[in-house]
Structure formats: C-alpha cells, structure tokens
C-alpha cells in the first residue's frame, strides 16, 4: 500500500468537509473492495476517510412501500433483515449471495453501489427496482446513476447516504456465479409492478449493468418464462474473458431471466 493519512469523522458533514479538503482522498466503508485495490497499488489515495463511526449512516426503514437502506448497512444486515425479507425478499436473497460470510460481515450497500463493479450484485437490484440513490447533495435515479465500468454519477467527494427501493409486486434475482471469485458471471434481476416489468443484467455487459429492454417488453405482454423463448441479448455488447465468452454470457442471460420469472410467475 502507498502511504495515506487516516481520518475517522463522526458525521456526514465532517466526512464531506474532509473529502472537500483532500481532493485525492477516498471514502472507506467496509473496505472489501478498496483495501484489496490499495494493497495491489491500483489505488493510492492521499487520505482515507473512514466512515465506520458514522452511526447515522446505518439502518433500514420501510415506509409507504419503500425500503430505505442507509449506505453503511452491511450485506449481512440486509440479508437477515425481517423488514427487507417481508417487503422485497429478492433483495435480501441477493445480499445473502454476495461473496462469503466474512465479506458480508464487512461490505456495505453504499460501497457496492458507489463502486459499480460490472460484476457486482446490488447495481442490478437498483436498476430493476427503480431505486433512488440519495447523497449528501441530491437524489439520483438508478437509471441516471450507473454510467459504465466503475463509473457513476457521483461527483468527487460526494457521499451516498441511503438507497431507496420501491417494493415491487414480484421480484427475483438469479445469479450464475464464478465459482472461484463468487462474483456474478451473469446475474439477472426481474421486477414486476403493475403492468411494468424491469429486467437488469449484471456481470455481462461491457459497460456494466444494463436493462434488457426487449425482455421487459416481452414480459409485459406475458409474464411467463415462455415469453422469452427465442429471445436473447446481442452478444456484441457483452464481455468475453477467460471465464466465459460473450455468446455464452448471452445464452446465460436468457436462462437466468427465465429462471427468475419462473420463480415468481
């Protein structure tokens, strides 16, 4: 690791001030992505602003059919939350599929969403459920938030404070894991609310998480696995790597989407 100065603010405003003072600094949440990256010297922030003591950033609230999860809430907490399980069971299940128990004991929803790893799980839930990402400055719709590989609408030093998920009528997440890394080789989140269906795909897109609009239209006409027969996402926009080529990923997207629909149809 390169050297850095360490700060432990007690409030969001203090953290924001520190971030403003240190343009080359970085926020530290669970550290499950940032610390490995720093150890490999792929990141070398001048300052680390450790959010772990900001208790205001922890907690889950369900109100008027919207589940609001504060940024520092850990994956284990979401996975085991009775409120989340009741309102959006697919979201709790997704959180329980992230990494392994030790990673879930540290990693946070805010860190995962801010990081926007193309193989991360939460971005698919944000996009499919039409979540709103709230920061210390503004509220951003998921559709406007995820901008590409590790790219988001966040400005320098902007802090995610919470993420709000409107509870859908039906939702399911299917993940085809890379058995070694446990990240998604392909993950498909399907959500249905009234006549509207949203399908978000993670792990596969060369620009990160995306919506499969053709699948959405087909499922709005007929919410059944058979509606996706013969449909596929073009392989041209998908990743090829040592784990899976683009054609295989395209195939997996249809299979995972059908399984998600079958689980709740």
């Amino acid at each position: 690791m390169y050297e850095f100065a360490y700060h432990r603010p007690g409030s969001v405003s203090e953290a924001a001030a520190l971030a403003g003072d240190h343009a080359d600094g970085k926020l530290l949440a669970g550290g499950q992505t940032l610390l490995p990256t720093m150890k490999q010297r792929l990141a070398g922030p001048s300052d680390l602003i450790d959010l772990s003591r900001i208790d205001d950033l922890r907690g889950i609230e369900v109100k008027d059919g919207v589940v609001t999860i504060k940024a520092l809430t850990r994956h284990v907490t979401v996975a085991t939350s009775a409120e989340v399980k009741a309102a959006i069971p697919a979201l709790a299940e997704l959180a329980g599929m992230i990494g392994d128990p030790a990673v879930r004991n540290k990693g946070t929803i805010g860190g995962s969403v801010a990081n926007n790893d193309p193989a991360a799980d939460y971005p698919s839930a944000c996009l499919a459920l039409g979540a709103t990402i709230t920061t210390n400055k503004r509220a951003i719709k998921a559709d406007d938030f995820f901008k590409g590989l590790f790219e988001t609408a966040l400005e320098e030093g902007e802090i995610i404070t919470s993420i709000s998920f409107p509870a859908p009528e039906k939702a399911n997440y299917q993940k085809f894991r890379n058995p070694a890394s446990r990240y998604a080789l392909v993950g498909v989140f399907v959500a249905k609310t009234g006549g509207h269906v949203r399908v978000a795909v993670t792990g596969a897109g060369s620009k990160g998480v995306f919506r499969a609009k053709e699948f959405e239209a087909a499922l709005e006409a007929n919410f059944a696995p058979a509606a996706l027969d013969g449909k596929s996402v073009p392989a041209s926009g998908l990743n090829s790597d040592i784990h899976a080529d683009a054609e295989y990923r395209a195939h997996l997207i249809t299979v995972m989407a059908k399984r998600a629909v079958a689980a709740v149809a």
């Binding site: 360490y6 610390l35 490995p36 680390l48 450790d50 128990p101 030790a102 990673v103 004991n105 540290k106």
Partner: peptide, 20 residues
Amino acid sequence: VVHVNGDAIKSCTTLALTCD
C-alpha cells in the same frame, strides 16, 4: 479470519485503525 465485536471478518482486509 478473526472475530471483531463478534463478527467473523478477514483480518487481511481490515485496517487495524478501523478496529480502534
């Protein structure tokens, strides 16, 4: 893996200062 406040975590991926 060690326990920090009862949670099993990977101590190679945690700063000592965070455990103050």
